[in-house]
Structure formats: structure tokens, C-alpha cells
């Protein structure tokens, strides 16, 4: 079932002025219920602009965006969308304003109108879900590290139990281990709760591991959309979009250039290891008779 349908979406900032920028051009895109989709593209390609349509913060200049069955041009629908579509902005830790972590995470759930026992239960559950210790709830956000703060800010949106979760570069500026941890957590929650996840990233390694489908944006145009494996194998296209194919894909291509074709396209280092092992087992000790 589609939960977001985008038809011929064009978005222009400051139309009719010398500052006019066409941020999105004729975008066609469908997001299905419960899927994990990655939105990739270099800086300024229009990723943030696109997702801000999904929870009604921006309106199309032309075209139509339907979320959860109704067009966002419908004002009543648009104004209630935040209840079901959670958007984690870039650097979400910059929005934290409370004196305790609990207060900040509880902000969204309280706005939903839940009573205080439900709110505090949801906050505790969410913190546990992302693997943070419960003691953190009484901590002062200013004393936390950047990575911790980022996870707290993400909890603030997750605690509202959105049907669709959009994350704008949740790993930007974090160490790789924390980035992986956050994404792995989200993936788990997505599987358990049937949440739809839209992940903005320009790290295709992350897309390769976590996403089922990938969409590639370049200068406001949707270059490609499809199953992760298919999109990531188009190294030429990714290069054109200013992105770098995952290491495993490049390795496989170099191997086949050198006369060692792998039976299928790997997405991660683990895939490569497995494929190479298969190759060794079927071909004996020397892979494919190639001599390096």
C-alpha cells in the first residue's frame, strides 16, 4: 500500500525574483507502507526540500503530494500530519531546549494530548528502545556528548510513535560507530512496529546495509529509484550524482576488471567475504584461474 505518492512535484524557492531557485523538478515517487527507503544525493540536490513536503511544512509549487491517502494541499490534513509523520531535522540536537532529557523527549507526546502516565511510559519505552540507559532521563542535556544528544533528539520524535519516520542525515558529523548504532536501532524499530522509514543520506554504505530501496536525487531531478542492489550497481549514475558507490560495489567491479567476476553483486564487506569464499570453494584454491 502506498503511503506517500508524489506526482510531478516541482518546488521553486522565491519564484519570480532574482533569487529564484528550482529546488525540485518533476519528481515522481511512491513510498510504500512499512518500507525502509533511502534518499541519496549530494549537497543542494533537494533532499531536505522534498521531505519537508511529506509532513506538510512545504507546499508544492506545481504537482501533487499525497500522504496517507490525502493531498497535502488540503489544509486540515496538512495541519494534522505532524501527528503521524515524524521528521528528524539535520542536527536535531540544536533544537533541544529543556533542562532535563525527559522534558525534551516528552515535548512531542504532550503536544499529542496524551495523559502524563502515557507520556512518561512512552518516553521510558523509547529511551529503552534505542538502548539509552534510563538514568539519562534526569540528565541535563548540556552535559551530554554530541552523539548522545543526537540520540536524545531522535527519541523526541520516535516517542510520538510516528507511522512514517523521516530522518535528515541522522549520522552527519558523528563517529561511524554511533552512526551505525543509530541506524541499526531504527531498522529494528521499523521491523518490529511496521514503521515506514525515509532516510536521507549521502553515505551509500548506510543505504546498502539498511535500505530496501534507494532514490537518487541530483540538482532537483530524480535520477533513479529502485531496489538497493540495482541502484547501487549503477556506479556511473551514482558518480554523475556526485555520490560514491559503496566500497564493496567498487571492489567487485575492480575484481571483475581484473578477471575475477563475482557471482552476484555484493553490498557490504560481509557479502564480499561470502562471495569470495563461495568462489574459492567451487573453483578450488585458485579463484577463476586468474593470476594476479
Amino acid at each position: 500500500m502506498p503511503c506517500i505518492e508524489v506526482e510531478e512535484l516541482t518546488h521553486v524557492y522565491y519564484p519570480g525574483t532574482p533569487l529564484e531557485i528550482v529546488a525540485l523538478r518533476d519528481i515522481e515517487l511512491t513510498v510504500y507502507d512499512g518500507e525502509f527507503i533511502a534518499l541519496a544525493g549530494s549537497a543542494g540536490s533537494g533532499k531536505s526540500t522534498l521531505v519537508q513536503h511529506f509532513n506538510g511544512l512545504l507546499l508544492p509549487t506545481a504537482g501533487c503530494v499525497k500522504v496517507l491517502g490525502r493531498a497535502i494541499s488540503d489544509k486540515q490534513h496538512r495541519q494534522q500530519l505532524w501527528r503521524q509523520v515524524g521528521l528528524v531535522f539535520q542536527f536535531p540536537e540544536r533544537q533541544i531546549f529543556s533542562n532535563t532529557v525527559f522534558e525534551d523527549i516528552a515535548f512531542g507526546p504532550r503536544n499529542l494530548g496524551w495523559d502524563s502516565t502515557t507520556v512518561s511510559k512512552q518516553v521510558k519505552d523509547t529511551v529503552a528502545l534505542v538502548g539509552l540507559p534510563e538514568e539519562i532521563l534526569s540528565a541535563d542535556p548540556r552535559t551530554l556528548s554530541g552523539g548522545m544528544l543526537r540520540r536524545v533528539a531522535i527519541c523526541g520524535v520516535l516517542a510520538m510513535r510516528p507511522r512514517i519516520l523521516i530522518m535528515d542525515e541522522p549520522g552527519a558529523g558523528l563517529e561511524p560507530a554511533t552512526r551505525q548504532l543509530i541506524l541499526a536501532n531504527i531498522k529494528e524499530i521499523q521491523a518490529q512496529h511496521g514503521m515506514t522509514v525515509i532516510l536521507i543520506t549521502h553515505h551509500l554504505e548506510d543505504a546498502a546495509v539498511f535500505a530496501e530501496r534507494v532514490a537518487v536525487l541530483h540538482q532537483g531531478v530524480l535520477l533513479s529509484i529502485g531496489p538497493t542492489r540495482e541502484v547501487l550497481s549503477q556506479t556511473e549514475l551514482l558518480h554523475r550524482a556526485g555520490l560514491k558507490a559503496p566500497f564493496a560495489v567498487e571492489l567487485a567491479q575492480r575484481l571483475s576488471q581484473e578477471g575475477i567476476p563475482l557471482p552476484s553483486l555484493p553490498q557490504s564487506i560481509e557479502d564480499v567475504a561470502q562471495l569470495l569464499q563461495q568462489l574459492l570453494q567451487t573453483n578450488g584454491a585458485r579463484p577463476g584461474g586468474a593470476s594476479l
Binding site: Q52, N55, L57, W82, R83, G86, L87, F89, P92, R94, Q95, I96, F97, F107, G108, N111, L112, G156, V157, M160
Partner: peptide
């Protein structure tokens, strides 16, 4: 900040003056 707090359900455009002022905290502090 305006967009981010609106996504978390802050309504900056309705309610009494006192309510509106108190709703500014999540906006002004950060």
C-alpha cells in the same frame, strides 16, 4: 527551529497571548 518545533506539534498561531508566549520557549531558548 520554527519548522522543527512545528513538526513536534507546537502551534504558534492559536491560543491566548499567555499560551502563545509560553509556547515560544522551545523556539527562543535554542
Amino acid at each position: 527551529l520554527l519548522l522543527a518545533q512545528r513538526s513536534r506539534g507546537t502551534d504558534f498561531n492559536s491560543g491566548s497571548i499567555k499560551e502563545r508566549v509560553s509556547r515560544l520557549t522551545p523556539f527562543m531558548v535554542p
